[in-house]
């Protein structure tokens, strides 16, 4: 594998891992601050949850990683990398929280993943057209 592809792969996996960790932190913060109610008490409980700060750190980390990846990788793979965490989040939710999706929902998830891959190709196509246009 060339150095460039190794860089993409590491960046891709890193971004997915950070995004997944951030979402897990969100869910853990929500679970710990339960029961949810539309009142200031709930908001205060949330802000006292350390998991919320994990989620914020994850968002910041994901932002920096995405910007770095975008500087070097084509926009399509970068787009896919920033959205395909749905797959790792599904796996982690099943494993950590025992969540189960209904068969119809799994079909929906497959369509969403396919849609993200198509959009990633579409972004590459548009970026290439714009570059050609600019020249």
């Amino acid at each position: 594998m060339s150095t460039r592809w190794r860089f993409y792969l590491v960046g891709f996996l890193l971004l997915m891992a950070i995004d997944t960790a951030a979402q897990l932190c969100f869910k853990l913060a929500a679970l710990h601050a339960a029961p949810f109610a539309i009142d200031p008490g709930w908001l205060l409980r949330v802000l006292r949850e350390p998991w919320v700060y994990g989620a914020i750190a994850g968002y910041l980390g994901a932002f920096v990683t995405y910007m770095t990846l975008l500087k070097h990788a084509p926009v399509g793979p970068a787009f896919a990398a920033s959205h395909l965490q749905v797959v790792s989040v599904m796996a982690a939710s099943a494993w950590l929280f025992g969540e189960r999706l209904a068969p119809l929902q799994l079909l929906g998830a497959a369509l969403i993943v396919l849609g993200i891959l198509v959009l990633a190709r579409a972004e590459d196509e548009v970026a290439q057209a714009e570059t050609t246009h600019a020249c």
Partner: peptide
């Protein structure tokens, strides 16, 4: 912004997928 055929196909797949997740 341009809605190319591929972008339309992508968002159509995602939207259909979201509907299935919602009703599933």
């Amino acid at each position: 912004e341009r809605l190319t055929a591929r972008r339309l196909l992508g968002v159509a797949l995602i939207t259909l997928g979201v509907v299935l997740v919602g009703i599933g």
